[in-house]
């Protein structure tokens, strides 16, 4: 239990980005992503500038480039199919390296590729510098309704419990010579799902009772994390990132 599954994406560190209050980082990520998505796909220099901003943030956060690359690879299959679009779109065609591709498809593929990748990188920077629980604290401070943060808190807690119970049940099964191969496991897996669910629930229910016993009323007490509340300065620093992105967008759109 509690073997640390709740921070699978967190890169431990003490960079300025790590120390930024979570609510600032969430707001910045959301705004920055919106600016990226709102950028017309023809403004190539703007996307270059966004990539530079992301790179600078990654360096500031001391997130290794290798980690970012590996993590974004997980998303690759979903974005990479965009590469096929030029071959399948209708409309005027052009020749690239001797292949006939649709101009429109080329742009469409590029659009998905660049916005998808930038979006993933921004989200990875947030996740890499902010433990999951702090993201919830940030959401709470951004006035997210308590019902949502409470469900999210329990969800993260239960992910541990589920993984833990699943591991124990699997070990119990393997020690009785169950075949561990995937398709052979499906039957036992499906049959065990309901049991897993109940076991996890009853364990989690005890956790909840223990929390209630110590006066829990639906939100983590603010006193536990008052050290990290965003200062006006942090908000100002954070706001600079989307502001910079907007400036890039406007400059590119109207001046170039």
């Amino acid at each position: 239990m509690g073997a640390g599954h709740t921070h699978p994406m967190y890169v431990h560190g003490h960079s300025p980005v790590h120390h930024l209050a979570p609510e600032v980082k969430i707001a910045v990520s959301v705004l920055f992503t919106i600016v990226v998505v709102a950028t017309p796909r023809e403004l190539l220099p703007a996307f270059g500038a966004y990539a530079v901003i992301v790179a600078v943030l990654a360096v500031l956060a001391r997130i290794p480039a290798g980690w970012l690359a590996r993590r974004s690879l997980i998303e690759l299959p979903f974005v990479a199919t965009a590469v096929l679009l030029p071959f399948f779109a209708a409309g005027p065609r052009t020749d690239v390296l001797g292949l006939s591709v649709a101009v429109e498809g080329l742009w469409a593929g590029w659009n998905i590729l660049v916005k998808g990748t930038l979006g993933v990188l921004i989200a990875l920077l947030l996740a890499g510098t902010t433990p999951a629980r702090d993201v919830l604290v940030g959401l709470d401070r951004l006035r997210t309704p308590q019902a949502i943060t409470q469900i999210a808190l329990f969800m993260l807690r239960y992910l541990d419990v589920l993984a833990d119970e699943a591991r124990r049940m699997r070990i119990a099964r393997l020690s009785r010579l169950d075949d561990p191969r995937f398709l052979w496991q499906l039957r036992g897996f499906a049959a065990g799902l309901g049991t897993l669910f109940l076991r996890a629930f009853e364990r989690g229910e005890r956790v909840f009772l223990a929390m209630r016993s110590r006066g829990y009323t639906g939100r983590l007490p603010a006193a536990l994390h008052e050290g990290s509340v965003a200062t006006a300065r942090q908000w100002a620093v954070g706001a600079a990132v989307p502001a910079l992105a907007v400036m890039v967008l406007l400059t590119d759109r109207f001046l170039v």
């Binding site: 199919t81 096929l84 329990f154 807690r157 239960y158």
Partner: peptide
Amino acid sequence: APMAGLVAAFIFAVQMLNFPVLPGV
């Protein structure tokens, strides 16, 4: 409240098995 958390966690877990259907989806 704990049930909602577990349901969310359960859904989170089963959603981890995914594959591309359409570009970006």
